[in-house]
Amino acid sequence: MDDMMFLTFLATLVGAAWRLATPLIFASIGEVFSERAGVLNIGLEGTMLVGAFCGFATAFATDSVLLGLLTGVLGGMLFGLVFAFFTITIKADQIVVGAALNLLGMGLTAFLFRTYYVSTGKGIEIAQPVHIPWLSDLPFLGEAFFQQNLIVYSTILVAILATLVLYRTSFGLTLRAVGEHPKAVDVAGRNVAAYRYGAVLVGTGLAGLGGAFLTLGHSNQFVEGITSGRGFIVLAVVVFARWSPIGAFFVSLLFGLFYALQLMLQAQASIVVPYQVLQALPYIMTIITLVVVRGKGAAPGKLGQPYEMR
């Protein structure tokens, strides 16, 4: 490969990586909130599917991407409300409820899709890339960074906002305390359950947004199981990112990069490795990074434990 080819390759790779990372960024930042408050939600795959389906159904009926995104978020939060009720109010095991919600999300979206959409024809109009004067036309850099749609750009905003909320507001401070020392929060007169509800709703809302991006900002169709396991990858991203929103942003990008690289390397006729090796790469890397960044240091102390009020 000569230099020009390589630069083109790189520019495409980065652009694709960011798009592929976008659903992961939303969902993983959401899960950071939830886990920081001590709630481990493994039902994200189902939640993202609900977001993807709600978003698609709305946009299909109204032709509005914005309305679609909104219902995607609301659908995710509604699912989150069920999760919160069971894990926080009833204090059921978080893993159990998460597993149930995955089944429910996959089943419900597939059932409704099969029932109501015998044909979706050409699908929906999705969010188009925005053209930024001058920047979008830059060689290489333009393609990599400045030819995305608004939803992709908003990931930066979400990451910054999440960091500010988590570290610079009293809500964020209390929320983190809820995950570490719920008793102290309780003693201080704040409602642990309310904060956990809040964290779960933020988390599932963002997961819903991540799902909705798949149908409204990347592909224009809903397909059963369109999340293809992203809800599970998110769990790995959060651990790898040490429960930080900025970390989640960059780790998601790394996953997006692996995913894009895998697709692009396959297309290179000169590479003779079986493509399955490339497909397995992100998963193998996840395990390796878990070993390398080992230790529970940054994990919220009360992760996964219901809080018994005095």
Binding site: A100, L103, G107, L108, A110, F111
Partner: peptide, 14 residues
């Protein structure tokens, strides 16, 4: 649609 079974299973657990 046969996927109904997933919904029923999810509700069983809940």
């Amino acid at each position: 649609p046969q996927v109904l079974v997933l919904v029923i299973q999810g509700i069983v657990i809940l």
